[in-house]
């Protein structure tokens, strides 16, 4: 059965600071490249298949490693850094990770979350999400799905607010992205022969590392913008 913890983790009402991040949507809207539902769809699809892929893989890897006694979070953190070229995106990811960790420690108290906080007080968001998923009783595949959804749901909400788009049309768009979300999650955590809870085959260095230079540039421009509503 689907884990109820997954529903809480993927809910935009989870009080972990996500509402203040647009994932580049505010800047791409300011630039005029996203201005209606079809242009938003192209943006979200691109975001999911670039930034969303390593995020989902990192979340699944963190979830799988959370069962270990000393998972070596510093190493996974470095892998996340290496996959995040823009310093502004790194900062946004760490801020969201820190806030998620703060919430998760109170909502799902677990030694794994304490260990993560000791090792990396401001972990990257997908890493925090993966360990929170473990504490919340969700699987690695579910952690990956939550990370993939997070890659598009925040920007979609921001676009509704910034452009006054029809929220039902935008939700229809998110629904249409369903198969893509499932594919990204599956790629992050291929259903394999490894026993449940153990690390999937392959080392962390081999996690997917696709990037989106345009998103990196948007993030850097946004961080330097004089006037903005969203943190990222």
């Amino acid at each position: 059965m689907l884990s109820p913890g997954l529903l809480l983790l993927a809910d935009s009402r989870l009080p972990a600071g996500g509402h203040a991040h647009s994932g580049g949507a505010e800047r791409v809207i300011a630039a005029g490249a996203v201005h209606d539902v079809p242009s938003l769809e192209r943006f979200l699809r691109g975001r999911l298949h670039t930034a969303g892929v390593p995020a989902a893989a990192l979340a699944a890897a963190a979830r799988a490693a959370a069962v270990d006694e000393s998972p070596g979070w510093e190493l996974l953190d470095e892998e996340a850094d290496a996959r995040t070229a823009s310093p502004a995106q790194r900062a946004a990811s760490r801020t969201q990770g820190r806030l998620l960790l703060r919430v998760a420690r109170r909502v799902w108290p677990a030694e794994a979350l304490e260990e993560l906080a000791r090792r990396t007080p401001s972990p990257h968001h997908p890493v925090a999400l993966g360990v929170a998923a473990y504490a919340a009783g969700a699987t690695a595949g579910e952690a990956a799905l939550a990370a993939a959804y997070h890659a598009v749901s925040g920007p979609a909400t921001a676009a509704v607010r910034l452009l006054g788009l029809d929220p039902v049309a935008v939700h229809a768009l998110l629904a249409a992205l369903g198969p893509d979300l499932a594919a990204v999650a599956e790629r992050a955590h291929p259903p394999g022969p490894h026993p449940p809870g153990s690390r999937p085959p392959g080392s962390w260095a081999e996690l997917p590392a696709c990037s989106a230079p345009a998103l990196d540039l948007l993030a850097e421009q946004h961080a330097r913008a004089e006037v903005r509503l969203f943190v990222s």
């Binding site: 009402r13 989870l14 009080p15 972990a16 600071g17 996500g18 509402h19 203040a20 991040h21 647009s22 801020t95 820190r98 806030l99 703060r102 919430v103 921001a158 607010r161 910034l162 903005r228 509503l229 969203f230 943190v231």
Partner: peptide, 21 residues
């Protein structure tokens, strides 16, 4: 300074994480 993403109200009532931080 905390940035509130369009919703000043959310940041003090529903999702206070950034302010607590």
């Amino acid at each position: 300074a905390v940035e509130t993403g369009c919703c000043p109200h959310t940041a003090i009532r529903d999702d206070i994480a950034a302010n607590l931080d």
